[in-house]
Design a protein around this nucleic acid. Structure first.
Lengths: 166, 166
DNA sequence: ATAGGATTGTTCGAAATTGAACCAGCCTCG
DNA sequence: CGAGGCTGGTTCAATTTCGAACAATCCTAT
């Protein structure tokens, strides 16, 4: 194969290493969080995320779709998890006045309490594993990187390019 | 709450934003890859990862456990996926001579071919979304970050600290 | 030797996630 | 209007993942 082939068809070894490690790190991170969350607080990471987003929302409430968007999962998965959280009494559904199809999900007091119990545990983990070693420059750099990635993803979502390359 | 509470119990808003965005970006990235891979090449991202790791391994083969480690999933999940890949004819199992419990998984010619078909598609995606915008400094920085995170995770795996904080 | 402990891989059931199909309610444009 | 298309949420079957339990094998220390 020509010199250019390597560049265009495969990643340079060092770059490839970065990508590989990125995948591993994210998976391990996810795994750790999940394990600690389930072990100590009886909720999944997704469930925790839902609680966090709700607490963040106006009046501790949020619409299903928006929830699905911020969490980045299928809508059906949100329905499923909101059902579970609702059975646990951590969350309530409310009809939406302005749109009769819509439903609000709202944190219950119990839900807020549970979140406040779990948050320190997992935030300290996030700090230990992910954030503590960042100095200001690195933090800014990471922020910028995430920004670019995010933009790229937006861009890419916008035009559904499906160029089947074979 | 005192001034210190905020620091210790919650994340600073900007830091929190970084963490949130990190989660979103990784999920969206994963999702994009999966969609393209399934749409154009009929394999999952995990399956693709398995093929990649095998191709990388000595003699295009690898042990189940090592596979599970590099992919970062439960061993049972690897068993499941290797079964599928085996049914598709992309992979073969071989007895391990040096260890009678072990099994090698080996890429078949068809498996290698499939990988070579899929790789350009997904690598170009990875480049577009993830790597192209990195200059040298950023790339080095990211590499360093990943290194620290990886080390932190190692450390954390080593001592199974379960300090239930309530 | 050999007993005890660790490791390898599979199996099994439970839980989670997905996409497609679907029903309502909304909205726009003829 | 009101017919079509779009959006919000749920349901459903299929796929995937996980963890715990298990059997077989290896390894180490006495």
């Amino acid at each position: 194969m020509g010199a250019g082939d390597f560049e265009s068809r495969w990643l340079r070894p060092d770059v490839n290493a970065v990508w590989t490690r990125f995948l591993q790190v994210t998976h391990r991170l996810e795994h750790q969080i999940d394990r600690r969350l389930q072990g100590n607080h009886g909720i999944t990471h997704t469930q925790y995320e839902i609680l966090v987003r709700l607490a963040d929302g106006d009046g501790h409430a949020m619409r299903m779709s928006d929830l699905a968007d911020t969490i980045v999962t299928a809508k059906s998965a949100v329905t499923y998890q909101v059902n579970k959280l609702s059975e646990m009494g951590l969350v309530e559904r409310h009809k939406c006045d302005s749109d009769n199809r819509g439903t609000w999900v709202k944190l219950t007091p119990a839900g807020l309490e549970r979140l406040e119990q779990a948050a320190p545990c997992i935030l300290s983990l996030v700090r230990e594993l992910f954030l503590d070693d960042l100095n200001c420059d690195q933090s800014a750099e990471l922020d910028k990187l995430l920004g670019t990635w995010s933009d790229n993803l937006d861009e890419h979502d916008r035009n559904p390019v499906h160029r089947p390359d074979h």
